[in-house]
Structure formats: C-alpha cells, structure tokens
Design a protein around this nucleic acid. Sequence first.
RNA 1: CGGGAAAUAGCUCAGCUUGGUAGAGCGCUUGGUUUGGGACCAAGAUGUCGCAGGUUCGAAUCCUGUUUUCCCGACCA
Length: 414
Amino acid sequence: MKQSLLFVPTLREMPKDAEISSHKILVKGGYIKQHAAGIYTYLPLAYKIIKKIENIVRDELDKIGCSELLMPAMQSKDLWMESGRWEVYGKELVRLKDRHDREFALGPTHEEVITSVVRDSINSYKKLPLALYQIQNKFRDEFRPRFGLMRGREFIMKDLYTFHVNEESLDEWYLKVKQAYINILDRMGLTYRIVGADSGQIGGSASEEFMVLCDIGEDLIAYSDESDFANNVELCKLNEGDPSPDGKGTIKHAKGIEVGHIFKLGTKYSDSMKLNFVDVDGVKKPVVMGCYGIGISRLIMAILEQHNLDLKVLWPSEVSPFKIHFIPMDKEGSLGYEKGFEVYQSLLNKGYEVLFDDRNESAGVKFNDADLIGCKYRVISGRKISDGILEVRNLEDNSVSMMTIEEVLNYSFN
RNA sequence: CGGGAAAUAGCUCAGCUUGGUAGAGCGCUUGGUUUGGGACCAAGAUGUCGCAGGUUCGAAUCCUGUUUUCCCGACCA
C-alpha cells in the first residue's frame, strides 16, 4: 500500500466530523477526503469502487439499448431560460459568470442540455425511441449537505433520458429501465424497495424511487413485510401494523436512502423547448420523454451501510475494490514478505485483483485497516511460511484455512 | 433560513472560567529492540491558537464582527 502501489491514507483516530458508520469508514479507511461541505475527493480506493458501480450501471443500461454520452457540466443560461427553470430552480442551482459577464449554471441535472442535443436531429418518428445517458458530476448547492457522500453539493450521478413517439412507447421503456435498475441494485447486494414518489422539481407525471432500507435514510417509507408493496409514508399515510393495501402482510416503517429515481416526463421539456417530430401520420408532435437517475456516489454509502458490522466491512463481490487482501506479517526482506510477494504476483498473473499490504506496520495496524477495506479473502503470510503454509480467511463464511502456496495458487477465489 | 455545537501540530484533543514564553497522546524523522489484532526504548522535527478589529503593559484565553465545519429542524429531491 506504499504510495507507488496504492494511496490509502487510513486514519488511526475516529474522524470527528463523521456520525454515521458509512461516513466513518470512508474517512477512516482512506477512501475519501473532504474538500468543503458536501464536496469530496474520491481517493483511489473509493474511485475503484465507483468505477465498478459505474460499470454495472453501464452494463445493464447498454443491454437494454441505451447509449452513453457526456454532456457539459457548464451550461448557458439561455437553455435554462427556455425551459423556465433558471427562475424556478432557486438557490440550489450553482450560477456563475464568464469573463464577458455571460451567465452559466453548473448542471444539477441535464434535461435542458439533452433536449437541445437531440432536437435538431430527431425530426421523424423513424428515429425514435432513443435512450441516452451519461455519468457525470452534478452540482446542487444544498442548504445542508450532510453525511459525507449522502447529500453532497458535487456528486456523481448517472442520468438517462429516453425519447418516444407516444405514451405507450414511454411506458414500455419505463418498465425496461425499471427492470435494469432492479438488476443493478441486485448486483450490488442491496436490500431496497421501490416506492411511488412526487416528481418535484424535474416535473412530469409518474415517478418511482428506489429506496435502500437503512436507519440513516432521509425518507420514511411504509412497506409490506410479506410482499413488494412499498410507498412513501408522506404519500400513503399508512401506519405500522395496518394491513397492506395489496392484501399481503402488514405494514412496517423503515427509513430509506433514495439511490434511484425514475420519471415519466411526458412533454414538459419537449413543449417548452420545442422538441418535435413528424409522426407516421404526417402530423408534428412533441416528443414524449422519460428521465432516470442513479446516485453513483450515494450508492457507495448505501452499500456500506448495509455491508458493515461495527465498522468491519465486507463489500459485495461485484463492487469490492479487491478480491484478495494479501498481508505479509513481516517486514520487507523477511522470508514471509518476499515469499508472500511472489505469491501476490502469481495471483495477479492469474487475473485476481489483489491488494498487497507492503507497509512496515504491526500486525494490528494491518488487520485493522484490512477490516476497513473489506475484501472477501484475506491471505496472510506469517509464521508458517517457512513450511510453505499460508493462511486464507474467507470473511463471508468466516472460515480460516491453512494452505500450501501451491494450494493457494490453485484455489478458486470467487 | 431558525436552533445547537465547534475551529489550537498531520489526526484526536487539553489549555480559556481566573489574561503572563504553545501543550498531551497518536502519527512523522533518526537509531535500536520487537513482530498474528492499532508494540517498546532513546533522541528529534512540527503551530499565523480559523480570520479581522477592539480592550490591555501583555490575548489561544476577555469583547465585537466575520468565515468555515458538524448536528437537529425547515427546505429540496
């Protein structure tokens, strides 16, 4: 974990500004560093996880026919005037001027830009439907940023926009995207519910939120203990113990973290920004739109909240920064270290992602940091290395086995 | 934006009530001893006490303003 290999600046003391466990882990474990309220650097460990999360998202969206692009974060005022949101969005919109005093906003979301991008080329029903997404830093000047990455002023979001000839096509895509979201959250090992929601600032008709169940969530949801039924308490007014409206089970309350939100926008932006197409009947019509967000940086916290026990972490395998955490107990130059380094290299050559703790730290320091880093397998090269024996721990089933080097190299870590 | 707490070494904090040369632990550097869950000994380095005014012979400490951070609420999604 020397700088040359990986910069993981773990802390010994508990960070004073962190209250919730995921935030404590991220700061203490050297995953993130705060820059200002709600603004963070993603250090290598967190960035590795972010890239894995992003790639799961990409994988599932590409499968259903979406294509990725990248739009500007800095957006001219003109577009925001067109949609009317320059005035409506309020103080949360980060505004700035260039050297010529021209006004810009830092994008909190991209309906305006995407609409302007497609409106010149989408002029016929033959070019629809269309689904475009990006993964990008978003800016929202929140009144009260909090809980580390949970509510930031600059954060990473995936935003997808779909374009359709009519409501039926939108409905069909809405369901496809919803299923993709289900696949995405399942792959990340999350326990969550899908709830009906208000569409708020973004506008439009139907919308649903993907809420990861956990105590530090900012929303209160009511859900059935025996079915998929769930709704925001504010909207459904169901009390604990009430029978579930779908007839299955009784209502329980839980807090939730909103990690995804899907909307049927309808023609809100196509109307105001004149995104029209000529339909098969020769009539000019507004494009029907949908938009769908996933809070990428927020997902790290949501996953951590559900996958730590007393600040000991076990990342779900698809997002784990490494498969194997290799710990030599002795310092550089010792048999345990050098032999261990060879095994580490061989494991790398076999295609495993392995973290090798090459620091001259005591066992306690290494183990404590390893608990924060949370890889499923921990391979330890210690006192039995002279007999060619390594210890392999599986944090998932809590097993410990002693293996020869050859056994380790032939073991299937998954 | 209302309420609360805080800002002193890289980190966690003490000192402030009652003004008088800037402190501890951890970390860091050097040397030695250790080595399976945050080791030990010795020697070192490290500060615009958030910032700006004011009071005073003298301010980390008292007063005023200001900035920043965290928490609760409201707001937002």
